[in-house]
Amino acid sequence: MKYVVTCMTVASAIALAGCSKKAPESLPPAPTETTPAPAPTPTPTGPVPGSQQHFHQAMMGQDVIYFDTDKYDIDGEDMAALRKQAQYLMQYPNISATVEGHCDERGTRDYNLALGERRANAAKNYLVSLGVPASRLSTISYGKERPVAMGSNPEAWAKNRRAVTIVVN
């Protein structure tokens, strides 16, 4: 029995010796610390917030208010548009705006420049009454010099009697 145990031990030792691993001829290089590459910054799509394009898009056409012939008073529809403009301007306190006054082609150049100035000032004053600092707003009158609609008809005249708010950085 002692012989059997000895044979078993020798056989086990031989079997284990056959399974032993050999040391590699050369060791692999030591691991290096790698920092993961930063994820690419997504390219912004759409206009830059605070830009004129962003303002125009956010206003959805309410960056322009319209006036009746020889008038510069702010009506209910204009008030709604100017409230929306004021909210935008308050959201972006680092930007300023210029309110442009425009007229249709009728009337003298001097008359239209003065009327355009009154229209621009009426819009500016309403924005100031809504909390926009006057220091961030300026006005300019173009009179009849920059029409958006060409033609000598009531439709063109109505489109040209306007005040336009332009964002400046």
Results as ranks from 00 to 15, higher is better:
V4Y: 11
V5R: 11
V5T: 10
C7R: 09
A11P: 00
S12F: 12
A13R: 10
A15K: 07
A17S: 13
G18M: 14
C19Q: 12
S20W: 13
P24G: 07
L27I: 06
P28M: 08
A30F: 08
T32F: 06
A37I: 13
A37E: 15
T41E: 15
T41K: 15
G50R: 01
Q52P: 00
Q52C: 02
Q52N: 05
H56F: 11
H56D: 14
G61S: 02
Q62P: 03
Q62T: 10
F67Y: 07
D68H: 09
K71H: 12
Y72V: 05
D73R: 11
I74V: 12
D75S: 03
D78C: 09
M79G: 12
R83D: 13
K84H: 07
Y88V: 03
Q91F: 02
Q91L: 05
P93L: 04
N94Y: 08
N94C: 09
I95N: 02
I95Y: 04
S96Q: 05
S96F: 02
V99Y: 01
V99T: 03
E100L: 13
G101Y: 00
G101F: 00
H102P: 03
D104M: 01
R119E: 02
N121F: 07
N125R: 12
N125E: 15
Y126W: 06
S129W: 06
V132E: 04
V132T: 06
R136Q: 09
L137T: 01
L137M: 04
